[in-house]
Amino acid sequence: MAADEIKPAAVKAEAKSAAVKAEAKLADVKKLTEAGPGLGRKTTEPGAPAARLTVEKTVTDMTKATEGLFKAAEEVAEFSRGNAEAVAKATQLYVAGVQDLSKQTLALFQGLSETAIENAKAFAAVKSLKEAADLHAAFTKAALEKTFADSAKLQEAALKLAESSFAPLSARMTVAVEKFSKPLAA
């Protein structure tokens, strides 16, 4: 994370350095245009001031363009950092949710195993075929009802997991749409 924090500072320092260099070049160009074709004399040629203004305007425009590019690079870096944070948060929520779903599924299977053991013990005490059939029907019905109820709970938990783990990504998508639709509308 420390490397990410250094990058915007480095980009700002680089932009400032580029701006200082551009201003120095502009000052050099001004000196050159004031000095004529001779040795440091002021020029009195008719096109000299127009040429100087053109060079100054070009340098100024290039300086502004460079500053704009550095600002855009900073914005892209910041936006990318936000995307990475959203993916990390979504992954964290997903992993925690899958762990919870696994615990719930394990509890479901443990309950079914315990019921099966109880059923086996009850079958050991059966004295007639009719009693065994009735016992089997009752246990099967109870196991199916419990399985359906627990499955519904697992489905709800899985849906909540999907919603919660996708929420950070959805929020970033909204930010992206808002951020990138503004220049198109403007």
Score class of each variant (00 low, 15 high):
Ala2Gln: 05
Asp4Leu: 10
Asp4Gly: 01
Asp4Met: 10
Ile6Gln: 13
Lys7Ile: 15
Pro8Val: 01
Ala9Pro: 04
Val11Leu: 15
Glu14Met: 14
Glu14Tyr: 12
Ala15Ile: 09
Lys16Thr: 15
Ser17Ile: 06
Ala18Leu: 08
Val20Leu: 14
Val20Cys: 08
Lys21Trp: 10
Glu23Val: 14
Ala24Tyr: 07
Ala24His: 12
Ala24Arg: 15
Lys25Tyr: 08
Leu26Glu: 12
Ala27Thr: 08
Asp28Trp: 01
Lys31His: 14
Leu32Cys: 09
Thr33Leu: 12
Ala35Val: 01
Gly40Met: 02
Gly40Pro: 00
Gly40Val: 03
Arg41Leu: 12
Arg41Gln: 11
Arg41Tyr: 05
Arg41Ser: 11
Thr43Gln: 03
Thr43Leu: 04
Thr43Tyr: 01
Pro46Ile: 02
Gly47Asn: 12
Pro49Gln: 03
Ala50Asn: 05
Ala50Thr: 06
Glu56Lys: 04
Glu56Leu: 03
Thr58Met: 05
Thr58Ala: 10
Val59Met: 14
Thr60His: 03
Asp61Met: 06
Thr63Phe: 00
Lys64Ile: 08
Glu67Thr: 13
Phe70Trp: 11
Val76Asn: 06
Val76Gln: 08
Ala77Gln: 13
Ser80Thr: 13
Ser80Arg: 14
Glu85Leu: 15
Ala88Arg: 10
Gln92Gly: 09
Tyr94Asp: 04
Tyr94Phe: 11
Val98His: 00
Leu101Tyr: 03
Ser102Leu: 10
Leu106Asn: 04
Leu106Arg: 05
Ala107Thr: 04
Leu108Tyr: 00
Gly111Ser: 11
Gly111His: 09
Ile117His: 09
Ala120Lys: 14
Val126His: 00
Ser128Trp: 02
Leu129Lys: 12
Leu129Phe: 06
Lys130Tyr: 04
Glu131His: 06
Ala132Cys: 01
Asp134Lys: 10
Leu135Asp: 00
Phe139Lys: 09
Leu144Gly: 02
Lys146Tyr: 05
Thr147Met: 07
Phe148Lys: 15
Leu154Phe: 04
Gln155Lys: 14
Ala157Val: 06
Leu159Gly: 12
Leu159Asp: 15
Lys160Val: 03
Lys160Asp: 11
Ala167Lys: 07
Leu169Tyr: 01
Leu169Met: 08
Val175Trp: 11
Val177Ile: 13
Val177Thr: 09
Val177Trp: 07
Lys179Asn: 08
Phe180Arg: 05
Ser181Arg: 02
Leu184Tyr: 09
Leu184Met: 10
Ala185Asn: 05
Ala186Asn: 07
Ala186Lys: 06
